[in-house]
């Protein structure tokens, strides 16, 4: 400590970078599982794939404590209002990751019961393909989202800085 105090150094960066760095490295997902993809999402967080390596293992039960909603699975017409409510409950800044074919586009179920893509209900920042996406795909999607945040501006989902 004494050495550090004797020779004070300094680090320069933009405020934007600093804030974005903080946001990416502590992004807490809401534990919001819907269908098959939720099983793979849980598998990603469990021992073998260990999402904790990317600072994201803290799945929050309450949306009010979460930054990221991983829409893992097919969204039915009955679930869509609930999903929107969960999204609205999340505090800014918040991001949405659409996991799997069903959440992204309805997948193979183009019928009366399913919302054909969760982007009709909430704004989606990242789409992860697969049915279901394996843990590697999900991790890649999350890392891409982190990169997106790092490269972006400080803003919330409504575009207000």
């Amino acid at each position: 400590m004494a050495g550090v105090a004797a020779e004070p150094g300094f680090l320069m960066t933009t405020l934007e970078k600093g804030v974005n760095w903080a946001r990416t490295q502590s992004m807490w997902p809401a534990s919001f599982g819907l269908a098959c993809c939720a099983i793979e999402m849980m598998g990603t967080g469990a021992a073998h794939n260990d999402l904790a390596r990317f600072g994201m293992e803290v799945f929050r039960a309450s949306p009010r404590q979460a930054d990221l909603m991983i829409v893992a699975g097919r969204v039915s017409q009955k679930m869509a209002p609930v999903l929107r409510q969960v999204y609205d409950q999340m505090a800014e800044p918040k991001w949405v990751l659409s996991m799997g074919a069903c959440a992204s586009s309805g997948g193979m179920f183009n019928n009366y019961a399913l919302v054909q893509g969760v982007d009709q209900v909430v704004p989606v920042d990242m789409y992860v393909p697969g049915c279901p996406p394996g843990p590697q795909s999900l991790i890649h999607g999350i890392l891409s989202l982190q990169q997106l945040i790092m490269d972006g501006e400080i803003r919330n989902s409504t575009g207000v800085v």
């Binding site: 097919r74 017409q77 193979m108």
Partner: peptide
């Protein structure tokens, strides 16, 4: 009903050869 996917209806539009893709996603 929050995960009602209409798979029984979708099954009526898929051939028997395609049906396995549908039913395997029921009890995942």
């Amino acid at each position: 009903g929050y995960l009602h996917t209409g798979m029984e209806k979708t099954a009526e539009t898929l051939t028997y050869a395609q049906g396995g893709t549908n039913v395997t996603r029921m009890d995942y």
